[in-house]
Design a protein around this nucleic acid. Structure first.
Length: 526
RNA sequence: GCGCCGUUAGCUCAAUUGGCAGAGCAGGGGCCUUUUAAGCCCAAGGUUACAGGUUCGAUUCCUGUACGGCGCACCA
């Protein structure tokens, strides 16, 4: 919203002068901002710097309250707190306000008898909602019972030049009711700092998110997994079916892709001798956005040697149950009004059976694309031209089965042609050992017994349209180095990937992925 | 990418078949020494997202643009 682009050829100092006097000149400021700038000047002239360098804080608001409660009502407890003013009630010769720091609020009480008259005037005339202040005094309890800091002195820590949205809170039967909130989603995402500053429940979502990521690490670290980091800038992208973002390295004259998954780099590490590895990081997919898709999103992938997709299923239900327990206190949660029990074991259904039950189709009766397409057309679907049999099956899964999967479940045994990195089932080359976990009507994770046969893998790549002849720009190149790695020997292994943002949605009861990403992608406003 | 809906004061929202654009909170000036959605009095605050069109007259009707929300599509 407030950017000062530096133009080529302009002296930066000259530019700074111009920007401070230019567009945001006093006459163009809103009344609210003009008044605050004048107050800033006035407080400076009164000898109180509006942006001082040092803070004196002895207690957080919560520590101050705890100290008062421990010491007893008659004890004179001196504290100095720091935080942002979130409410002010002026009553002539006394003033009440709330100071908020990261973990709570404390009421402060300024009273002419206790405070120098000039100081009192300074507060009442020049201090605003949103300012950061430090305040020191003694703890007390008001007539209405609220633990309060009676102020002997205060000073400004950072003057707020732009006013925060006015939020009022009322406590009714122990519940906090918020009046006049800051709710416009666009404004909230574009100025997340304002959203966080005034909406405590938003801060809480991101605390939960941090706990969830910590719990993932705790679960895997305890089981001997090694956390690693692999390239985000990749010359050949792979590991998922998604369009990539492209970029370019100027000095190396090299086109690069932002990764769409970690898979191929992580499995190379198993070739190298690590047996259990994982990565938590960002993937980038150049596709549509929706309530469950952001162009960049956080993924957890792990690979475990000497294991197959059955082992991974067990680990998955244990992991998700553990994370829920650690972060919400229970493996039974409520999501968008539905009660969901994440405790293991989760229901397991073969994909074929699920389609029989929910879509009334036995895919074994339709071994060809044409046969399945004909059936879907009869049912009123219009599959996209050129869809493979596997893609048709996936479309049935997405439309009929996924919305029904409220309680957690695993669908397993997927079509080969949509799973080029998964190992075939013994005796059934058209089906692979792959599963997806579903909860609350959306896909949470995807996993399989990894394909470690270099000859089969090369064949799969060729079927996916990869080519050794990369002279054609349109042609997706063969990942020869990955095949080379497999030729050195990849131990039998299981692999797993899960969208962390979706897990956070589930565990914080949020219906939109943008609510769990601090800075979700939005179009620029020009 | 397609469809539907939305955009009014710093924030949250009004505006009666098309007839001077309003309120609460915040902000400004007063009163008020235990308030807590503090209260009372006064004054102020707007290119109704943007650009066109229809009309004597448009926040309201039409077209387009931008951004957003929801749904669909896309998403090994």
């Amino acid at each position: 919203m407030y950017t000062t682009p530096i133009r080529k050829g302009r002296n930066p100092i000259e530019h700074q002068k111009r920007s401070s006097q230019g567009r945001r000149a006093m006459e163009e400021l809103s009344e609210l901002e003009r008044v605050r700038r004048e107050k800033m000047q006035a407080i400076r002239e009164a000898g109180m710097p509006p942006f001082p360098h040092r803070t004196h804080r002895t207690h957080t608001t919560q520590q101050a309250i705890a100290a008062f409660e421990e010491a007893g009502e008659d004890e004179q407890i001196m504290v100095a707190i720091a935080g942002r003013l979130r409410s002010i009630r002026k009553m002539g010769k006394s003033t009440f306000a709330h100071v908020e720091d990261e973990h709570g609020k404390l009421q402060i009480y300024l009273r002419l008898d206790e405070l120098d008259e000039d100081r009192m005037k300074l507060f009442n005339e020049y201090v605003d909602l949103g300012d950061f202040v430090q305040a020191e005094g003694t703890m007390m309890r008001t007539r209405s019972g609220e633990i309060t800091l009676k102020i002997a002195d205060f000073s400004m820590l950072a003057k707020a030049i732009t006013p925060l949205p006015a939020i009022k809170e009322e406590v009714v039967d122990g519940e906090t009711v918020v009046h006049h909130a800051f709710r416009d989603p666009e404004a909230r995402y574009r100025q997340r700092y304002v959203d966080l500053a005034v909406n405590e429940e938003v801060r809480e979502i991101f605390r939960s998110r941090a706990r969830i990521v910590t719990a993932i690490r705790e679960f895997l670290d305890e089981r001997g997994f090694l956390e690693v980091e692999t390239p985000i800038l990749q010359p050949i992208y792979g590991g998922a079916a998604a369009r990539p973002f492209t970029t370019h390295h100027n000095q190396l004259h090299q086109d690069l892709y932002l990764r769409i998954s970690f898979e191929l780099y992580l499995k190379r590490l198993l070739v190298g001798g690590f047996e259990r590895v994982y990565e938590i990081g960002r993937d980038f997919r150049n596709e549509g956005v929706s309530y469950k898709h952001n162009p960049e999103f956080t993924q957890i992938e792990y690979y475990i040697a000497y294991a197959d997709y059955n082992d991974v299923m067990e680990l998955t239900e244990q992991m998700v149950g553990f994370i829920a327990q650690q972060t919400t206190g229970s493996s039974k949660i409520e999501y968008q009004g539905q009660r969901i029990d994440l405790s293991p074991p989760w229901k397991r259904i073969q994909l074929r059976e699920a389609l029989m039950e929910f879509a009334d189709v036995d895919i074994q009766d339709h071994p060809t694309v044409d046969s399945l397409r004909k059936l879907m057309l009869e049912r009123g679907h219009e599959p996209r031209q050129g869809s493979s049999r596997g893609q048709l099956i996936e479309s049935l899964l997405v439309n009929y089965v996924e919305p029904k999967t409220i309680q957690p479940c695993f669908l397993y045994d997927y079509p080969r042609d949509i799973s080029p990195l998964a190992k075939s089932k013994v005796g059934d080359p058209q089906t692979v050992e792959r599963f997806e976990g579903f909860v609350a009507g959306f896909e949470l994770c995807n996993a399989f017994t990894e394909l470690n046969d270099p000859f089969d893998q090369e064949q799969r790549f060729l079927e996916m349209g990869r080519d050794y002849d990369v002279e054609d720009e349109e042609c997706h190149p063969m990942d020869e180095d990955y095949l080379q790695a497999l030729r050195y020997g990849l131990p039998p292994c299981g692999g797993f990937g899960m969208g962390v943002d979706r897990l956070v949605m589930l565990l914080t009861d949020q219906a939109n992925i943008r609510e769990v990403i601090l800075y979700p992608h939005l179009r620029s406003r020009e």
